[in-house]
Amino acid sequence: MRRGVTAIIVFAALLLVGVWVSVRVPPYAVGPGVVPDAAHVWSARILLVLTLAWIVIGIISARTSLVGRPGASAARASWIAASRPWRARESTLGMLQLDRVLLLVIPGGMLAVTRVLQSSAGSIAQLVVTFGGWVVFVVVAELWMRGRSPWALIAAVAGVVVLRCTLTLLPLSFGFPYGEAVTRIYMALSTAGFLWTFVAAAWSLFPRFGPRRGIGIVMAAAGAGLTVTCAVIALIGPAQVLEGWIDHVSPLPWGLGRMIGIANLLGSVTTAVWSLALSGLVVGLVGVVLALPERTRTAL
């Protein structure tokens, strides 16, 4: 009960951060979105139904014998780990190999298709960057496991990814432009969901590593992912990658693509991306210090 209340308070704080971010966007950048074509709309609707089905199966499996069916255990683990990350480890115990594969493939596939629907047809760069960043995050976190099972962390991240895909697919499924209010609400919820990914990931590690090391491992992994991602974006070209997220999605500001193009000519976007890469490096180094065992930290 206490941890549930703590989780609600933490998410409320993250939501306030999201509200602050959405409010900071200037009014002229929050106009009506680009109207998706029929193929995008129906694809989003079909994927939304499948995503909701995965979530419902996870919720039902947590309380019924459905958990014994193929795939249900993976759905259950992703739901529990995303909503109650302190139970992530116990939710993954006894999973069959098929469930472990599905725990990777289903959320990963949802993320890939959602990003394709969220961007223009020719924008593959942002999809590669998105997956590359998460791969770096998982690989670096795995290095800290030292032979321990990584499935609690994977379940937490996968579960939040599914919920975030649902949030993105909802407005895409309606297929009409949105006003300023809806756009700002979407941005606030999206920001809170993104930040909750790392909170859930760290929380899932607390039972085995403790709060300090759990937070440190996630900070090290997130810092590495941010550094590599920003470095790749800077080398590819910020405008090309960032417009991939903006060009075809209704809930995002319609004027942001033009703003990025202008800012990129002035070099400010590239500078900001390299600054984020440096920030990621700092966060990663702090995470490494926190993630070290007490004996190693004392020796240093």
Rank of each mutant, 00 (worst) to 15 (best):
L276N: 08
D247R: 01
W254M: 05
G225V: 00
I260E: 07
Q240E: 14
L265E: 12
S268K: 06
G261L: 02
I236Q: 10
S275G: 13
S275P: 10
G255H: 02
G237Q: 14
V289Y: 15
T270Y: 01
L252R: 00
G225K: 05
Q240A: 14
Q240M: 10
G257C: 03
T271I: 06
G255Y: 08
A234R: 11
L281M: 15
W245E: 02
A263P: 07
A277I: 02
V269S: 08
G255A: 01
A263T: 07
L278Y: 08
Q240G: 06
G257R: 05
I246F: 04
L256A: 08
L278E: 09
L281V: 11
G280H: 07
V286H: 02
L281T: 14
V241Q: 03
S250G: 00
A239I: 08
L281I: 14
V273N: 02
V288S: 09
S268N: 06
G267K: 03
V241N: 04
V273A: 02
G287T: 04
H248P: 00
L235Y: 13
S268L: 08
A231V: 15
V228D: 11
I262D: 11
T270D: 11
V282P: 04
E243V: 09
I236H: 10
V269Y: 06
L265H: 11
I246M: 08
P251A: 00
V269M: 05
I246K: 01
V228W: 15
T227H: 02
V283W: 13
A234N: 12
R258C: 07
G284A: 05
V249H: 01
H248D: 03
W254T: 08
E243G: 03
V273Y: 01
P238A: 06
L276P: 12
E243T: 12
V288M: 14
L256Q: 04
C230K: 10
L266S: 10
C230G: 07
V283H: 07
I233V: 13
W245C: 01
W245M: 01
V228A: 15
G244W: 06
G244D: 01
L281F: 13
Q240S: 09
V283S: 04
S279A: 15
V288R: 13
G284S: 02
V241K: 07
T270N: 07
V232G: 13
L226Q: 07
V286D: 06
V249A: 03
I233M: 13
I233Y: 09
V269G: 09
L285Q: 10
T227F: 10
